[in-house]
Amino acid sequence: MATNTLNLPEQEYMLPGNRACAGCSVGIVFRHMSKALDGKAIFVVPASCFTVLCGMYPTASVQVPVMNSVFPGTAACASGIAASLKKQGRDDLTVVAMAGDGGTADIGMQGLSGAAERNANVFFVCYDNEAYMNTGTQRSSLTPLGAKTTTTPAKGKMQFAKDLPAIVEAHDIPYIATASPGYPGDLYDKVCTARGISGTRFMHINAPCPPGWQFPTAETVAMAQLAVETGAFILFEIMDGKFQLTGKSLALADKDNRQPVRKFIELQSRFGVLDEETLARLQERVDERWRKAVARHRAEE
């Protein structure tokens, strides 16, 4: 049975008074991830917003061990820790690599690919706020089509975001999932699942960012939920190659009642006044991905 609000553990691993932006979704993500891991994890963190959340020397806002890493080095550093723990016979800890979209899909991609190919005993989590938010909102390869960033300032990004889970899936690892801070129970359950598996596990988490996406801080959760409700972000897991929709996305597939992408886009000022053609391309892309996901879900059910 899926975890709900009332059976989530009470124990917290993130302390109040941290350095994250008001309304940052990464706080929600980390709270539920760390609950699912029961705190028995070592986090490896490259330069990213999460670095800031974790705090500056000599104080920390998270009650888990964190190892900071150079930007491209997350997966390798995590591999090293995993190997070290194995040599020491410690099998009670999960090594979590926690990187942003840049640290995963851009500069971190080589390291992630290497670790995944070796099936390193690492749980790699990409919290995807869809641009280099920590350095001031520069485009990444996961920035969506049409989004304005400080390096796509006038016309918005000209390319679609790349399909990160598909790239990772090509490595044949035991577990891949997506998750959203809009659905903490689903996220919690997936982290619990990942925790129980050895080898490389990967999770792609949609992480709405009020300053970067340009929406009011209060809307973070609503934005995360809209991403799922429109099908712009699909909740699924792939266990040993078997693809299944989960949670809200599964419910949407059953009822076939997705919202139009416009509803999600128009709340974010980063898209400015989107021309109809770009909007249509975005909708078309979402529809295509959605159709494929539903078809695959049904085929592998």
């Binding site: 302390l15 109040p16 008074g17 941290n18 705090g55 500056m56 000599p58 104080t59 920390a60």
Partner: peptide, 12 residues
Amino acid sequence: MSWPCVGEAGRT
């Protein structure tokens, strides 16, 4: 090496 504490960023 940092230790966890409440109010890492001061009184937010």
